[in-house]
Write a protein that binds this DNA or RNA. Structure first.
Lengths: 245, 245
DNA sequence: CGATTATTTGAAATCGCTCAAGTTGGGTGG
DNA sequence: CCACCCAACTTGAGCGATTTCAAATAATCG
C-alpha cells in the first residue's frame, strides 16, 4: 500500500467546493511506523529506508533531526480537509525534522530509497558542533524555500512545471549557470515523482500538470518516455519558460 | 519616495498578459543606500532604520547577516518582468540576510521603523556561538515558511486573507491556542502593510485582497477603521476561515 | 495478457485577474 | 476650518487560466 493514498483520489483544490465539507479530517496524530530506538550518546544513528515510507508524520513528537545522505524525501503538510502541499523536497546533504514546537509540523515521506543520519533533537541542541554542522545546510534550504514561494505565489502553471524540470537539471538555471552555449543543451532527467506529487509540490492539480507537460511536448521542448523520464531537448528554452530569466 | 515604487502601479499577475512584454527588467544590481561600514572585530553592530527603507537588495553582495531587534521588515523577490513576491515577514528576534550564494537572493525593506544588530557574514561563519545563536531562531522561521507555502499553494483568497489577519493576532491560531472560550475573542490589530504589500505577500492582486476584506466586513467578522486598523470582532470565526481548523 | 492504477484529454464551471471607474482618507495650502 | 489634491483603496464588469468533472488512453504489475 502506497503511503500517499490519502491523496490518491482527486481532491478538489477549491475550498468552496462542496466535496470539502464531506471529507474526513486528515490523519494528524498517526504515529510513524518506521520507529527505531535512538541511543542519545551517539553522534547520530544511521537509518536505511525504502521508497514511499513515512519517516514521521505531522503531529508526531518531534524527537529527531534527520540529515539525508542518500535518496530523496518530500515534506508535506495536510489541511484538515485533505488538501496537501509539498513544502520541501529534500536531497542528499539536506536537513529535515526541524520544528519550532514539540511536534512535527509536516510529514516526511521518502520518494526514493536511501539512508539518513538520525540525531536526537535534545543531543543536537546540546552539541554546538553538531548544531552548527546541521544549520549550515539550512541556509541553502532557506533560499530554496524563498524561491519556491515565488513559484507558488506568482508563477503560471507552465512556468511552475518548467521550473520543476529545471530543478532536476544540475548546475543550470541558478547562480553560476554557464548560460546558453555553456555546456550541453540536452539532458535526460528522472522526475522521481508521480504527477500527483508534482502537482502537490507546485500548488496545481494533477490535470494542470499533465497539460503543461503535454504543452511542452507539443512545442518540441521535451520528449516524455516512461512518464518519469523526461528528455529535455533544449535546456535553455525550458529555463526561459520558468519566468526567472 | 517610497522604495517599492516599482510595483506601485498595477502590474498584471498573469504572465500571458501582453503588459509583461512591455515591462522594463527589474532592477537587479542596484546597491543598497543604507550602507554603514562594519568593524569585523565587533560582535554585531547596531543599526537604526526608518520606515520603507531598503537594508539590502536582491543582487547586492551578501556581506551581512541581520538580527531584528525592533520593527518589521519584509523580504521580497522580484521576477524580471516585475512580479513581486514577499517571501518572508521578519519580526523582532528573527534573522535575515542569510544567503547560500555570495549575493542576496532577495531584497529587505523595512515596514516599520526599528533597529537591528548587523553581523559580518564572515564573522558569523567563524564564530560558533554567534552562528548557533542565530541559527536557533531560523528554526521557527523555517516552520513559518512551510506554513506559508501551504497558504500560497493551496488556500483560497479568503483563506489567505483570514490567515494573514490571524498572523497579526498574537498567541492565537497556532500551537498552544486556547481555542474558543479561551481568552478574548475580540482584538484590534494594526496590519502595518498596504494592500499592495499584503497582496504581494499572499500571492494575490490588490483588488482581490480588498474584496476579501470587504467580504469579511460584510459578514460582520471584522470592522475596518483606518484601512491599516482592523477590529476583529470574532477571532475564532476568522480562525475557522483560514482553512487550518 | 488482463486487471488495476496512473496519466491524458475534453468540456464546462469558477475563482481570481484585468481593466476601468468611483470612493475614501490624509495631508496641504489658502 | 475648509476645499482641494493625490495616493490608496474599493467596487463593478468581463475575461481567462486553472479547476472540476467525466471519460478515454497509457503504463504497470502480476
Amino acid at each position: 500500500m502506497k503511503a500517499q493514498m490519502i491523496q490518491q483520489t482527486t481532491i478538489p483544490q477549491n475550498p468552496a467546493h462542496p466535496a470539502f465539507r464531506r471529507r474526513e479530517p486528515a490523519p494528524r496524530a498517526i504515529r510513524s511506523t518506521a520507529f527505531i530506538p535512538l541511543r542519545p550518546e551517539e553522534e547520530g544513528h544511521r537509518q536505511r529506508f525504502g521508497e514511499h515510507v513515512h519517516l514521521f508524520r505531522q503531529g508526531d513528537d518531534a524527537t529527531r533531526i534527520y540529515e539525508l545522505i542518500d535518496g530523496e524525501v518530500m515534506l508535506y503538510k495536510l489541511l484538515p480537509d485533505g488538501r496537501r502541499q509539498v513544502v520541501e523536497l529534500i536531497g542528499p546533504g539536506d536537513v529535515f525534522g526541524i520544528s519550532a514546537i514539540p511536534i512535527y509540523e509536516c510529514s516526511a515521506e521518502t520518494l526514493r530509497a536511501g539512508h539518513a543520519v538520525v540525531h536526537d533533537r535534545a543531543v543536537v541542541e546540546r552539541s554546538p558542533d553538531l548544531f552548527r554542522l546541521l544549520s549550515a545546510r539550512l541556509q541553502a534550504q532557506f533560499c530554496a524555500m524563498h524561491e519556491h514561494a515565488v513559484l507558488l505565489g506568482r508563477k503560471s502553471a507552465l512556468e511552475r512545471v518548467a521550473s520543476f524540470i529545471m530543478k532536476c537539471v544540475p548546475g543550470r538555471g541558478g547562480y553560476g549557470c554557464p548560460g546558453p552555449g555553456g555546456g550541453d543543451n540536452t539532458i535526460n532527467v528522472r522526475l522521481g515523482m508521480t504527477r500527483q506529487e508534482i502537482a502537490d509540490y507546485l500548488g496545481l492539480t494533477i490535470e494542470t500538470v499533465s497539460r503543461a507537460f503535454s504543452e511542452l511536448r507539443r512545442r518540441g521542448i521535451v520528449t516524455i518516455d516512461r512518464q518519469e523520464q523526461v528528455l529535455v531537448n533544449n535546456i535553455c528554452r525550458v529555463c526561459k519558460l520558468t519566468g526567472a530569466h
